[in-house]
Write a protein that binds this DNA or RNA. Structure first.
Lengths: 152, 152
DNA sequence: TTCTGTGCAAAGCTTTTGCACCCTG
DNA sequence: CAGGGTGCAAAAGCTTTGCACAGAA
């Protein structure tokens, strides 16, 4: 974890930015909740435990900065708030979401199933893919199981 | 076009809703701009040409209603506004967006390249796919061409 | 000192809601 | 006259911005 913070610190410094205590607290919250998709408000409340004097605007500014640095990815699931995801170390970020329309759970598949498609896009459409996003909406295995039980 | 409006009218009536003049004007705007991804504001301004007395709230309410009826799909590209897309007649809606980070153009691929993935999800994850969404961010063929020219 | 970063409050935007009124059935 | 539908304006979020101040280089 310290190593990842150190890396982000260097990324920031290489662009002339500082890893201030507020920014570090924000990054730590993101690291500690890597599996979640936190909204700015979520991050704000968690950061407040570490640094109670922080302001919401600073959190927004930090997330915006981290987003520009490609340290986090800003996601939009259509629920009215932006959510932020730490990017993995790999140069490209590929993950897929399984959003259950019944219970609202969001699972994640990290495996990348899209490389063949991207190659086709480059060749057939002349489109250079930098990133992508793939969300599936449907019914998760838990709800599927429950539904089966109910119907018995 | 009249046939499609008639069909939507029947869909509404089957749920106890009416196709009021305002709603019809909104649907016509969506039909006439089927290739675009209009925001509520966009729709509002276009509908005003047909029905100047309409209010923005009515447009929002109509789009929300049409969205519930699965006549349109509400999309979110992360630019701060919801956008609305008429659904095609086919029961499943599958399209992919190519969003250019350089010029902002959004092209669309209607072809469905994901069926194999969906089958895998069902089998390996027990996840029943109802809909999906796939966006690629990158550089479009036009910008790629321009960039090449500039670099010469 | 200079410049970046911060907290607070105000403003900005999109979207939703309350309410009186209208119109159809 | 009952009910849904509408327009207007106000309210309600989420996010950004202006400004004065703090702190490091």
């Amino acid at each position: 974890m310290e190593a990842r913070i150190e890396k982000i610190k260097q990324q920031l410094q290489s662009q002339g930015y500082k890893l201030t205590p507020q920014r570090e607290a924000t990054v730590r919250v993101l690291l500690e909740n890597e599996e979640d998709h936190l909204s700015a408000e979520d991050v704000f409340m968690l950061v407040k435990d570490k640094a109670p004097e922080i302001g919401l605007a600073t959190v927004y500014r930090t997330l915006e900065l981290l987003s520009e640095m490609h340290v986090v990815e800003k996601l939009n699931f259509g629920d009215g708030v932006a959510r932020y995801d730490l990017r993995t170390d790999s140069s490209k970020h590929h993950h897929h979401h399984l959003i259950c329309v019944q219970c609202g759970a969001m699972d994640e598949i990290k495996e990348d199933w899209l490389l063949p498609l991207e190659e086709r896009l480059e060749q057939e459409y002349g489109f250079t893919v930098l990133d992508h996003r793939l969300d599936f909406q449907g019914i998760c295995h838990r709800c599927n199981a429950n539904n089966d039980k109910t119907n018995e």
